[in-house]
Simulated assay, not measured.
Amino acid sequence: MQREFDFVSPQDVLYIEDHPTNVHLMQALFKRCPHLNLMVARDGQEARELARAARPTLLLVDLRLPDCHGSDLLEELRLLEGYADIPAVAVTAEPAFQIEGTSFCEVWPKPLDLAFVLDRLAQLVERAPMVPGRESAPAPALHDT
């Protein structure tokens, strides 16, 4: 079931994931969400660089990154201006991961349930605060990074 979105402003979502198959799957999913601009970082360092240049409305974070743990990276990103209240989802194959004591709002277990992810994307982005200055921006093309 595909959900309709009620707004036209593009919103950035930062996906931090090192596995190419998972990146391709998420890129394919985001093609169904033309109002969302998927930015991909393949490790913690790239995520830090992207985070300094953009302020997404949602963070999707793998936990097992090649240069850090996703929970530690998220806490570091939370210290950046404007990142304290951005919803963050742990996207992980770690079955025992608990979000208590972290600033993740929820966990999406791998393998992903695609219908669930599309529905949650709609709900999380609708609740996310609009980034100032983005209200009238044209919809960008999907990034294949």
Results as ranks from 00 to 15, higher is better:
residue 7 F to S: 13
residue 8 V to G: 11
residue 8 V to Q: 15
residue 10 P to Y: 11
residue 12 D to R: 08
residue 12 D to Y: 02
residue 14 L to Y: 02
residue 15 Y to L: 15
residue 16 I to W: 12
residue 16 I to K: 03
residue 21 T to C: 09
residue 25 L to T: 02
residue 32 R to A: 05
residue 33 C to K: 09
residue 33 C to P: 00
residue 35 H to D: 15
residue 37 N to V: 01
residue 37 N to M: 06
residue 38 L to P: 08
residue 39 M to V: 09
residue 39 M to F: 13
residue 41 A to Y: 07
residue 43 D to W: 06
residue 44 G to K: 05
residue 47 A to Y: 07
residue 49 E to F: 01
residue 51 A to G: 08
residue 57 T to E: 03
residue 58 L to K: 02
residue 60 L to F: 06
residue 61 V to M: 15
residue 61 V to W: 02
residue 61 V to S: 15
residue 63 L to W: 10
residue 66 P to R: 05
residue 71 S to D: 14
residue 71 S to C: 08
residue 71 S to N: 11
residue 73 L to T: 01
residue 73 L to V: 04
residue 74 L to M: 09
residue 76 E to S: 10
residue 76 E to G: 07
residue 77 L to P: 02
residue 77 L to V: 05
residue 82 G to P: 04
residue 83 Y to K: 06
residue 85 D to V: 02
residue 88 A to V: 02
residue 89 V to E: 03
residue 91 V to K: 04
residue 93 A to W: 04
residue 96 A to F: 14
residue 96 A to Q: 15
residue 99 I to E: 02
residue 99 I to M: 03
residue 100 E to H: 12
residue 101 G to H: 10
residue 104 F to T: 00
residue 105 C to Q: 10
residue 107 V to N: 03
residue 109 P to I: 08
residue 110 K to L: 10
residue 112 L to A: 05
residue 112 L to I: 13
residue 113 D to M: 09
residue 117 V to Q: 11
residue 118 L to S: 09
residue 119 D to H: 11
residue 130 M to V: 09
residue 131 V to D: 00
residue 131 V to K: 04
residue 131 V to M: 03
residue 133 G to R: 09
residue 135 E to C: 01
residue 136 S to H: 10
residue 136 S to D: 07
residue 136 S to K: 04
residue 139 A to M: 10
residue 141 A to C: 05
residue 142 L to F: 00
residue 143 H to L: 07
residue 145 T to G: 12
residue 145 T to Q: 13
